[in-house]
Nucleic acid binder design. Structure first.
Lengths: 215, 215
DNA sequence: TAAAAAAGTGCAACGAATCAACTTTCTGAC
DNA sequence: GTCAGAAAGTTGATTCGTTGCACTTTTTTA
């Protein structure tokens, strides 16, 4: 243990830092999450019981449930950074770029060009129905934050219905394109719909043809 | 049980379409679904166990699981008619009406003007998180059929990505507007977005009045 | 220093879901 | 008509996720 904190006992009134206790709590929490990810990747989600995870982290199952509300939550422990990245993709987008285009680029970047470590995680989630649902639920929870960012950008009321709709639809895209043969094309088409609407859809029939794109 | 049917031996010339066996099977299935709906509405979803439902229908719990894959499935037993109505809303829409407009009307009709019997069911589902998820999952399962209908209407390939996106987004609307203060307005705005896109969003003079400019 | 609060443990229990072996129908073919 | 067998159902046990309760240990606070 590294003692890098200020002594609380000898200096009352000083900045009350984290405390040994909370550090230990965070440590066991991390041990649980790490053990869970490792075991799930090794043997598959359904072939690992919460008892296994708890024993691998050297705690009891009761303690595990004090840290995580359920088995699925063991895998989705750090999604706050995802939310801030999502908001930043809108609020700090390059000048001249529309909001749907910024979201499209963000989705393309994070889902298609994922680094291999994260890709293994995505593959595990994709192949487990229970985790697919949980992943989507966690993902959609960012709707409110994203809708706020969009509304602020567009100068609309904070709870504007159109902004909420755009946020929800954009967040739904990863789930929508899951399992399609050409995910990149599917993502681009979905955001094209959000950008210009069904009304402006190219009506040229036939696959492979190059219909005029209003970008 | 409740059917006063005559013995098969006395009238052998009857139309042997279904068979006594399948009728009994359908009867117990219906008994289970009816008991489940009744008990869930009486005491709430979480305060009714599958054992309770099975006993109310006078079967064992194992038999219940032979008919339904899980507790949640007890409530969603007749959704085929919903799918055909959905497809019909697109393929038999009034001339001159766009596809998003037709879907908007269908959603407005079925979610806002529900008859009280169905409204009680919706209220139960809305107040139970586990049922909300299941309801959405069942609902989204119609994406493929709806996307096919849209593609056929638009003269696009059967698995066109844009059509799938429109289908998914439209099906997501009921989940999106759940809990909003003005559901009708939220529905109209969401379909407005799908119809004309974010690009054509009204900025200064919005329909419906009220303060648009926050800052 | 004592008390209160929090983290952790062990054990038992409940509910959902599955499995295996067995009984009771009903169906269909000979 | 009879009989083999499929299908519905039952009992009982079992696994797994999850929660509740009583209890110990550790840390914070008064």
């Amino acid at each position: 243990m590294s003692e890098t904190e200020t002594g609380t006992g000898s200096s009352p009134g000083g900045p009350r830092t984290v405390g040994r206790r909370e550090r230990k709590k965070a440590a066991t929490r991390k041990a649980l999450a790490d053990a869970a990810l490792r075991l799930f990747l090794e043997r598959g989600y359904d072939d690992v019981s919460v008892k296994d995870v708890a024993e691998a982290a050297d705690v009891s199952t009761t303690t595990l449930f004090k840290h995580f509300p359920g088995k699925e939550a063991l895998l989705f422990d750090e999604d706050e950074s995802l939310e801030s990245a999502l908001v930043a993709a809108v609020s700090e987008r390059p000048p001249g770029q529309s909001v749907p285009a910024a979201l499209r680029e963000h989705v393309l970047r994070t889902r298609l060009d994922a680094k291999p470590e994260f890709a293994r995680f995505l593959a595990l989630v994709d192949t487990t129905p229970a985790l697919r649902e949980q992943a989507r639920r966690m993902w959609i929870r960012h709707e409110a934050a994203l809708a706020r960012a969009i509304a602020a950008d567009a100068g609309a009321p904070e709870d504007d219905a159109s902004c909420r709709a755009l946020a929800r639809f954009a967040l739904e895209v990863p789930s929508l394109v899951r399992g399609t043969p050409d995910p990149r094309d599917a993502i681009e088409r979905a955001f094209e719909l959000l950008e210009h609407g069904w009304h402006a859809r190219p009506v040229a029939p036939g696959p492979g043809g190059g219909p005029q794109r209003a970008s």
